[in-house]
Design a protein around this nucleic acid. Sequence first.
DNA 1: CGAGTATATGTCACAACTGACATACGCCGC
DNA 2: GCGGCGTATGTCAGTTGTGACATATACTCG
Lengths: 105, 105
Amino acid sequence: MEDAKQDRLERAGWRVGDAGDFLELTPEEAAFVELKLALAFYLRELRAAQGWTQTQTARRLRSSQSRVAKMEAADPSVSLDLLVRSLLALGASRADVGRVIARAA
Amino acid sequence: MEDAKQDRLERAGWRVGDAGDFLELTPEEAAFVELKLALAFYLRELRAAQGWTQTQTARRLRSSQSRVAKMEAADPSVSLDLLVRSLLALGASRADVGRVIARAA
DNA sequence: CGAGTATATGTCACAACTGACATACGCCGC
DNA sequence: GCGGCGTATGTCAGTTGTGACATATACTCG
């Protein structure tokens, strides 16, 4: 990982490092990251199921292609708010979101 | 509702008004608000089940009493991130959070 | 009635997120 | 190889969220 990215991530509040360092995450932090990852993958699934490009999806969400890419990557600069609101806007139901979150990692 | 509060809410991005105006929310916006409300009530349940005060809870979350109050009220100034991270920190599991979100309004 | 405790609301300086833009990477058909 | 397309990454100005503090309301116990 380049230093620039690490700086950005750390400013954004994540502990950053190689795989071994993940053990330093508290259980809550780990659960939160996994939860975000699950929603991120679901967003990609939803988009793929419709056959849309990130650019088309971005237009639909009134956002930008880069933000959609970051959402799907569960980038630390993406909030849960944005992820969930995007999923709902793309047609997921509240129950769908709940199911994805509850599903084991 | 006092004007001051209405101003604050509108600055925070909500459409504000009496009950009838809620019809102006898009379905996604409504679902998002309900989802937040469900988590907010769950936070209060969790706290009450432990017999903690908001102040004690705030210390545990490294936040302030006022923010806990706002979380439980699903105040627009509270993000989903904060709500979910708080629930996890208070002992809720990822599955618990998912279940609360999925549950019908 | 106070004093004490729990919760709610208003405000602000500072930190984090967002959309947009630029640019880079990877893949495919020509 | 090159151009086009889809996706990924870096950056930044403007907006929004956060913790803390002050203050307000509400309830209980002497």
